[in-house]
Design a protein around this nucleic acid. Structure first.
Lengths: 161, 161
DNA sequence: CCCAGGTCGTTGTGCGCGCAATCAGAAGCC
DNA sequence: GGCTTCTGATTGCGCGCACAACGACCTGGG
């Protein structure tokens, strides 16, 4: 029926394959849009802004190099520059010069930023749990985690990005 | 230690939770970027363009209403208008008036579009299999499919969007 | 010491997207 | 039939992002 020949698998996706693949795309889109919308509505904060504040809060001394921050939140360096610009303008973080590398710059959380993050975190975590985590048992979450590790590892993102 | 009180679960994410959640975000980003890059490099086609052609090819008479197309590929109507503009300019599809609703318009695959899709599909499917589907057993894919259904169902996307 | 090559952050530019407004046409109501 | 109301598609506009180019700076080899 299908094209015969041993080339790298190009058959159309089977139903289960389609379900697994397209479901992931749609779920991700739905979750991202919903969570971003909630955060925006409740605190006037973009999801990407939230991620910046969150990584900063987790970092030592609440500060990170622009470069590391960019790769943490999966953004280009130029994109991060502008994002940090906006957050600085809102007073949620500040730029701090780097003493041992005059090229470098830190983004550092301000008290206002810390407070904003606390409020936003409640909203965000509540959403993540309600729309995602709570739908699965701990065992299922582990399975999912394994799956992602497999994907990221195979894509070469576990190590170099 | 943590804040005591029975409010809707706002504790920080546990390690397994974080792994399941952030892994999904990163996997999705990695897959999307990689697949889009391949498609772009091999055929000068965006992932979103590919999706349009694909849905058209699957549709009856290889044509779909703009509206349906937009919701299929999770794009705003205005976004789709421009995307179809571009694809039309490249000759991959054409606009066809709708006889029973003068407001409506169809996007219809051209022979060139069909051919382009055939070539791109090989690249795309190969990528999806290599980077995602092949990493899982059929049983695991079913589990994943179940997971997505749960997420989408709970988000109210199974029915109304 | 000096220079080549790499890295960090910023800026110019273009692109794709969503939102809101708009227009044409359909659908319901009296 | 004439009115309001709704829907499909397009357009104006602003935003956030990536890419490429740039200047400042670090680093290693001669």
């Amino acid at each position: 029926m299908a094209t015969v020949g041993g080339s790298p698998d190009t058959r159309p996706l089977t139903r289960p394959e389609l379900r697994a693949w397209r479901g992931m795309l749609r779920s991700n889109a739905a979750l991202a849009k919903a969570l971003d919308g909630r955060l925006e509505a409740a605190h006037g904060l973009q999801l990407s802004s939230y991620e910046v504040l969150m990584y900063l809060a987790d970092a030592e001394d609440e500060r990170m190099r622009m470069c590391d921050l960019a790769s943490s939140i999966l953004l280009s360096r130029s994109g991060l520059t502008r994002l940090v610009d906006r957050l600085q303008r809102e007073g949620l973080l500040e730029r701090v010069a780097c003493s041992d590398d005059a090229r470098g710059a830190f983004a550092k959380l301000t008290p206002a930023g810390r407070q904003k993050l606390r409020a936003a975190t409640a909203t965000h975590l509540e959403g993540v749990r309600a729309m995602f985590l709570d739908l699965f048992t701990p065992e299922e979450l582990d399975r999912l985690g394994d799956a992602w590790d497999r994907v990221l590892d195979h894509a070469g993102w576990g190590c170099c990005k």
